[in-house]
């Protein structure tokens, strides 16, 4: 029993970090905006890590899953605006739709692209994001390039007061919950055969196959899981927080790049990594934009090069190596 419980110890620092983030946000005036951004980065990194970190495959079209998630919530809210009795139920339906849409897109992309190896996969995914955006604009799906604005509908269903609180507070809390849930799923995967299979295929795909691992199956599992969390992050952080959606904004590739930086910086494939990466990245981006406006991207380019050359395993990867022989080791994963 005790050893079973021990497997979940690494969740402790994750939860503590989120708790501190929450308490700081609630008790320090004027900081909720920053905390909200950090929560977004944490959840984004945590979700992306399930794919990038665990499989070692880089998906340059990742933001598309946040995009369709945003559209999922938007569609639910606009479509159900007449049913005022639904109340908060509309958010639940919105999340379900976001997950379904992100899952469908990831299955379509994964079924084709995941048969490709490493760099070829990365190249194939670059097109997905742009292609999907132009499909929405060109085929005039979901109002095409004029986007969807659904503040009024949200007000109508939830009532003005509650809608306001959802936008300014509860949306962020939902992002926090999604981040924690993504961490829990990551740990469950790590402790199961899925995690072992993913580690094996990340390290040596051919050897993994010979060992009896159906590599495509496990890559698709990781891809779909990661994508559905991304859909939820989009639905919460983009659709509920700012109830409008325009294709150029939700299919903006720099979010993918940010996700990659966060995961690499913190430690790809580790449980704590995305959280640590998100906090370092988010805080430094915030202060850089105040003190050195315009230079953030330049500085991050340098930071990334330094990380990849000096400690490719990321902050948590290094910590893991250092704590291998002491009592902290069961907390760091």
């Amino acid at each position: 029993m005790n050893s079973k419980l021990k497997k979940y110890y690494p969740l402790l620092p994750v939860c503590v970090a989120y708790l501190i983030l929450f308490l700081v946000g609630r008790n320090v005036t004027g900081i909720w905006q920053l905390v909200s951004t950090l929560l977004f980065y944490c959840a984004l990194g945590q979700a992306f890590n399930i794919f990038l970190g665990m499989t070692g495959y880089v998906d340059f079209g990742y933001v598309a899953f946040l995009g369709v998630g945003t559209y999922g919530m938007a569609t639910a809210v606009t479509g159900l605006a007449g049913y005022e009795g639904l109340g908060v139920g509309v958010i639940v339906i919105g999340f379900a739709l976001a997950v379904i849409m992100a899952t469908l897109l990831s299955m379509a992309v994964g079924a084709v692209a995941l048969r490709l190896r490493g760099a070829y996969f990365a190249i194939a995914t670059i097109g997905v994001n742009e292609g999907f955006r132009y499909l929405i604009e060109g085929a005039n799906l979901w109002n095409g390039s004029s986007g969807m604005i659904f503040t009024a509908e949200l007000n109508q269903i939830l009532g003005r007061d509650l809608a306001g609180r959802v936008m300014t507070f509860w949306a962020d809390i939902l992002v926090l919950i999604i981040g924690v849930a993504a961490a829990v799923v990551t740990l469950l995967y790590m402790n199961s055969k899925i995690g072992y299979a993913l580690t094996a295929l990340r390290e040596d795909e051919d050897a993994a196959k010979v060992m009896g691992i159906h590599v495509t199956k496990f890559k698709i599992i990781a891809f779909i899981t990661s994508a559905s969390f991304a859909g939820m992050v989009g639905a919460a952080s983009w659709a509920l927080k700012t109830p409008y959606v325009f294709p150029p904004e939700v299919f903006e590739i720099h979010y993918t790049i940010e996700a990659i930086i966060i995961v690499m910086l913190g430690g790809a494939g580790t449980l704590m990594g995305p959280l640590v990466g998100a906090l370092i990245y988010g805080v430094s981006k915030y202060y850089l934009s105040i003190f050195l406006p315009g230079f953030q991207l330049f500085i991050f380019a340098l930071v990334i090069i330094v990380i990849i050359v000096l400690f490719p395993e990321g902050v948590v990867g290094v910590l893991k190596g250092k704590t291998r022989n002491n009592r902290l080791k069961q907390l760091i994963l």
């Binding site: 072992y196 299979a197 580690t199 094996a200 390290e203 040596d204 050897a207 060992m211 009896g212």
Partner: peptide, 22 residues
């Protein structure tokens, strides 16, 4: 061709997990 980042124990466990007794 070891799974380099995994421990020796994990590497060998992968064999058991997906082999004939998997």
């Amino acid at each position: 061709r070891p799974f380099a980042s995994a421990t020796v124990r994990e590497n060998i466990a992968v064999g058991a997990m997906f082999g004939t007794m998997g």
